[in-house]
Design a protein around this nucleic acid. Sequence first.
RNA 1: UGCCCCGUGGUGUAAUUGGCAACACGCUUGGCUCUGGACCAAGAGAUUCCAGGUUCGAACCCUGGCGGGGCAACCA
Length: 569
Amino acid sequence: MEPSDLRPDSLDFVRAKVAEDLKTGRYGGRVVTRFPPEPNGYPHIGHAKSCCLNFGIALENEGGVCHLRFDDTNPETEDIKYVEAIKQDVRWLGFDWGEHLYHASDYFEQLYDFAVTLIQRGRAYVDSLSEEKIREYRGTVNKPGRASPYRDRSVEENLDLFERMRAGAFTDGEHVLRGKIDMAHPNMLMRDPVLYRIRHASHYRRGEEWCIYPLYDFTHCLSDAIENITHSLCTLEFENNRALYDWVLDSVGIKPPRPEQTEFARLDLDYTVLSKRKLIRLVEDGHVDGWDDPRMPTIAGLRRRGVTPEAIRSFCDMIGIDKVNSRVDMAKFEYAIRNDLNQRAPRVLCVLRPLKVTITNFPDGEVEMLDGSYWPHDVPKQGSRQLPFSREIYIERDDFMEDPPKKYFRLAPGREVRLRHSYIIKCEEAVKDPEDGEVVELLCTYDPETLSGPPVDGRKVKGTIHWVSRSHALPCRVRLYDRLFKTPDPEEAPVGEDFTANLNPDSLVVLQGSLIEPSVAADPPGTRYQFERQGYFISDPLDSEPGALVFNRTVTLRDSWAKIAARSS
RNA sequence: UGCCCCGUGGUGUAAUUGGCAACACGCUUGGCUCUGGACCAAGAGAUUCCAGGUUCGAACCCUGGCGGGGCAACCA
């Protein structure tokens, strides 16, 4: 496929800008983007949006390249385990950075030289105010700041101090390097931003080599320049940082064509949270079972949930790119997941909450093997398995009602229903527990003429239900995952409470006694299925093993019966 | 009370830089069916935030309101 074939018909404003720059030859035909995560947490679906944008633009344009760059300038929060996780997730999403794996921490020496240049040009100075004083001197959005008494140190003194900062002559916080811009600037970020700070901390890649660390606003733009990035895409909260981005490149003497920052709206999704801070809370407070809990919007969580990379990418295509902060409907994500899984998940039968059925006119001890296609007629795939059918089977508890409402066309006393890939059965009697009156078993008869066609007498049987053979079915554990929060915007919490007050108590329901057809016995963990009439499931990559099967529900099927039932109640 | 960004059906986005507002999800109704899935068909739903202005003509250009978001870490 040609790069241009990948490009969508109508371009979002970022792609339009790239196309324009290509047309005018601004970068000599180059398109170089970058995905710049900080290795201090696990990537989530919001990062996937950025990933798809940056790698997508590179893929869509002839000669386009996307770098993976770790923005690792904060030794206190970053860790090698996060870089490994991020690399794994980006790869899993289907993106390839090729040779272009970079680390901001590899640029420390160059960055230091740029800082020296800044000092020499009188554009930066060493400040010796305390952290609190610096904050105080900065003023507020309504009040201009004041100059630090150290602001007019000579170039020589600044150079000397900065050199000694690097050499380790000072303790944390004793000095900082600041850009010399304008303490009264209406953009707070331009009020002499801190560029370097002292931290006697061990960096996960550089060890003890450095005790001064450059900050984001100094590092990011220069890393872009070093790597010859053309389009530096970031989220809306960096809009005000753009002025500083340009100031640094300018002040250090980077000549055009140089990288340009463009901001787009990050993703917000209904019924979940996507900020690192909140995700950490969920993990640390034990609301979920770790970063890869299938309820988490992390890539690791979604993977374990059974979501495919293709579904995530198609979702990102669907939502587009814009400059307005907005929340995307969870139904849209679920659509993307179902739409993808519909084509790739073979159909099998699994009874979640079993109800025993004895087919009284089927010979005891006999087993009939029935052919069941893995795919419905509208999925162009081949393949089938044998389903054992016998006198005693299980059906879904929900598929029988003693006193059914209108429009319920499953099993009820005296009613008929089709067993998927099998015969039509009729409910003759519901056997109840004499103690509590609960239905514990159904006595049914089957019509032997109905295996491969409708009843000969033309009677209509509308419902089809799933089932398993009692003596052949495999016991399994099924984890039904649902939305993590019960409100679309978890942030809207009652006064005095935070987002955790909106956690959905039913986000995980574990079923211990489910029964699945035997054909899945030898499938490897991580296999995806559609449990017919239930939803899409995956055998848990970690917890499932032969003899102790565990399935995670990825997403339910669309359920028009649920709508009808909800309406009438 | 400062600066920056942004306002298009319920939701997310389009509208070749001025011509009947399009697509997707969701919703409704019908069809089909051995999954109440998928698919097919139809439909409801928008005063393009408001008010002026320019123009034969404005979602698009101008002005003023109103509304939403971001910014005062030695985080990114």
